[in-house]
Design a protein around this nucleic acid. Sequence first.
DNA 1: CTGAAAGCGCTTACAG
DNA 2: CTGAAAGCGCTTACAG
Lengths: 345, 345
Amino acid sequence: MKKILIHDIAKHLDVSIATVSLVLNGKAKEKRISDALAERVLKHVAEVGYKPNQLAKSLRTGKTHVIGLMVEDIANAFFAKIAALIEKKALARGYRIIYCSTNNDVARTRDLLAMFQEQHVDGYALALPPGVEAEARALVRGGKPVVLFDRLLPDVLADAVVVDGQTGMYEATRHLLAQGFSSIALITLHSAQTQLLARRRGYAQALHERNLPELVQELSFQQEPEQLVQDITDFVRAHPLCDAMLFATNYLGANGLEALARLGRQIPQHMAVVAFDDSDLFRLYAPPITVIAQPMELMAESVINTLLAGLEGAGKPGRVTQTQLAPQLLVRQSSIRPVDSGLGC
Amino acid sequence: MKKILIHDIAKHLDVSIATVSLVLNGKAKEKRISDALAERVLKHVAEVGYKPNQLAKSLRTGKTHVIGLMVEDIANAFFAKIAALIEKKALARGYRIIYCSTNNDVARTRDLLAMFQEQHVDGYALALPPGVEAEARALVRGGKPVVLFDRLLPDVLADAVVVDGQTGMYEATRHLLAQGFSSIALITLHSAQTQLLARRRGYAQALHERNLPELVQELSFQQEPEQLVQDITDFVRAHPLCDAMLFATNYLGANGLEALARLGRQIPQHMAVVAFDDSDLFRLYAPPITVIAQPMELMAESVINTLLAGLEGAGKPGRVTQTQLAPQLLVRQSSIRPVDSGLGC
DNA sequence: CTGAAAGCGCTTACAG
DNA sequence: CTGAAAGCGCTTACAG
């Protein structure tokens, strides 16, 4: 089965190559090609199943209809879910997804950004680690649509879709205070990722309003889960008065549950728990874990819409679209203060 | 910043375009280009940061260095993990990944396969739903490397990497029998996916050896999680004697835990549980859930190696490489028969 | 080693 | 509407 070329179509129909190409690209009207002829072309193309070579097309037009999606780690439930949603919506609008995981590694991210450019992706949906500001700025200057999501980059003015983690964490902390927990810790990462900083600000704000001291433990990222469990275990042991823990990310939460289980601490009797991001684990855990859930559908929708506005839109007037979405506190049993059963507090 | 072309490099160095191209493609020796000149070219290319246009290169050579990865659902923990591993290994070998989720939808899968072809991917790593046998065969005949993974397709002779789910499920069932559970149900999907059929065979085999009847519940896939929970709840209610459940997939397991929790059934006192695939949820659940874990690293490694053998290898001699990996039964508390505490059995 | 040239398969002004 | 042609940016025989 020989590959069919546009030349074959033209020859068969006894029309010019230009006619076929114009009809296929929807420029029949514009170029005053008769409806009858256009239909004849379309019919035959459908019959023989001719598909234009995308590489040739892309080389000529400079458009690939490919979107580069960069996440922290596709195996992370949050990023896997957002990737699935973005993929679905992009596909429905005729765009394909090429994806990469940065693992928050700056050098790797640089390579991957270069790779996307070499692949001539039409647009970028990026959750970037701090440290690639210069590259991100250059990308934005390059003129192709760039949407940052999940986290921003300081001093990089670009379209973005983020969730208001500050308010989310503020409300979660207030909820714990209202439940009567008094020594509330935040377990987060030693990182300048903006979404983490925002979450921390929300926590700090709620405590400051009550003149309570912060109790923040920063763990270093890019280490084995087992090490995180150990670090959290150490933290719990070192802070016997701590009666509630907020986890700034879903995998910190997962490792935190493991640490508490190993220590034999009951949730919420010995320790209340709230985590960022919802997941099967948190929803089904015994007891179910209170979470600050991000609006996944909305995020994906916003990312795609912003990207497509830039791709199809009539050259945006140099303005930047930053969308901030509200998270939702889903209160479950893990953060409800048990009726005092005589256990020491 | 104007885009640099190979022509610019040649002009600057006062050599021919051919020389630059040959050096860049590692054919300097072969074409008897002096080491000194080759080095001069490489040095200048590095200095100005010249990157050949991949589209032009691909159009000319027919190679894109892109691998098409098709999974059932990138948001599923198993596929997200395998995708992360395949991505990492592919990238390390100079290949990029373009991925799609089939959602086991036949029409959608056909479209996606066509899309991969239009994109001229160099190789395919595919977890396909039953129903696209013809397309898969055509793809294999097309001559580009195709590796099926996770599940095979009947009558499609292609390279493949699968896990021996039959033995995995056989051993899990034997383990439950050894623990003294007597009415063991298998919760699976109404589907002809080969990996599901293999798992079912393993279950049936173990029961037949003991002359015990099968108790299989097939749920229809492509329905909402909530419906699955409801179906499993109905099943449990309808089978009061059933004292152990095997779940054929990870999300059936997750929904099963939810159903049991809602029904107030204790694990393993009222119901033992074993699920396919390990995950944070199963590992951290209270009680921890016994699972049949797939060797993720090995699977990813095998997929990539098989693919690259086809991509770089000297034209395989018409033979097919099918790899079957052993799963591992991780026994946890959910399937250990509790010491009789006087509870009715 | 070089230079000129063909060719990968399209799109798109341009003159008619 | 058509036909001839340029051009997207490479790679690679070919003759020298």
